[in-house]
Design a protein around this nucleic acid. Structure first.
Lengths: 191, 191
DNA sequence: CCTACCGATCGGTAGG
DNA sequence: CCTACCGATCGGTAGG
């Protein structure tokens, strides 16, 4: 709100963009400062050290919460509609901003996952509109605990994105479309 | 085979362990050399530069090929057995060596995925015992293209591992067991 | 395979 | 918020 906050937010935004693009060790304090329009030494008026910048970015921009936020805006007449829309919408979200998962990968690789518990504790949602909608359509789905359902759903998205990265764009058609993967999620493998 | 190869292999092994643990930029040439029992300058007798070490490690140890290798050793009487065993076995594999996926994450974040196409081209398997077994039990499964099936299977594993990382070990029980996730993979969400 | 060294860059501090 | 600077470390080379 004050000018001080504004500079701090510019540092956070700058750090987020660079961490996501080049990783933690690949983004220097000078890079972050320059991108925020100040000199490196000035960062230390707002953060004690580099790692505290990362921690603040990670808690603020954790992809998990973005995912749950997007899920809450999904609508659908039937359970099938709802789940299909969720997969398609999240897929689109990640295709537009693949960086969303990068922040998480950077944390796993360079920070050894040590900030995860605090991020969860700080901003885990207490209620969810999406889960409420699933409950309303409970008669259409098998007797699966809701957390397992959510996890399978997010897992399908994750797997979709990562697998595309994995095999590269060239040969992606051979490995099936999003619709085909959604079908397996909805109806399973076995007859 | 010769002494020269032996040193080269020690550099590769050393680099693999360090890249997986600390990332690319977090592992210095001096670190890699020391861990291999030589001095940093000597590395340049075997590799032109640091990135070529990474490329060699990535192609040699790509987790995708380890996954396909493990799948080939899976046995099962029915399709359900086969797929359940596959999930459990791969899960165990990753639990013992979570580093397997780290190499891939490092490549995505720090190398922008540029080595992936070459790794695929160099050692993609032409036939697979696992896929052969799936074909034999085709009457038990729905009419899904085999690549889609494999992708869904690997996706379930990926999602399982990553989700556990994501939420931390503490609250993992609330989000469902491996058996529950396998059930969704086999029979789907809808009634 | 080594010692010795290069210029560049790193995170962070002093002092105003 | 800045300039100026610290010691440490980086990838890589020269030369033997």
């Amino acid at each position: 709100m004050t000018d001080e906050d504004s500079t701090k937010n510019q540092i956070l935004e700058s750090a987020y963009e660079l961490f996501v693009e080049r990783g933690y060790r690949g983004s220097s304090m000078r890079d972050i400062a320059k991108h925020a329009g100040i000199k490196a030494a000035s960062i230390y008026n707002h953060f004690e050290n580099k790692e505290q910048i990362f921690e603040a970015v990670f808690i603020d921009r954790h992809p998990m919460f973005r995912i749950l936020e997007v899920l809450d805006s999904i609508k659908g007449e039937s359970a099938e509609d709802l789940l299909t829309n969720a997969v398609n919408r999240l897929n689109r979200e990640f295709r537009n901003e693949p960086a969303l998962l990068n922040l998480f990968f950077v944390e796993l690789v360079e920070m050894d996952g040590k900030h995860v518990p605090r991020a969860i504790k700080t901003n885990f949602p207490t209620d969810s509109n999406f889960i409420k909608q699933i409950y309303e359509k409970k008669s259409e789905i098998r007797d699966i605990p809701i957390p397992v359902l959510i996890r399978s759903l997010i897992g399908t998205i994750f797997a979709n994105i990562i697998f595309n990265w994995f095999i590269g764009e060239s040969s992606s058609k051979r490995w099936g479309s999003t619709a085909e993967l959604t079908d397996v999620l909805l109806r399973g493998i076995l007859k």
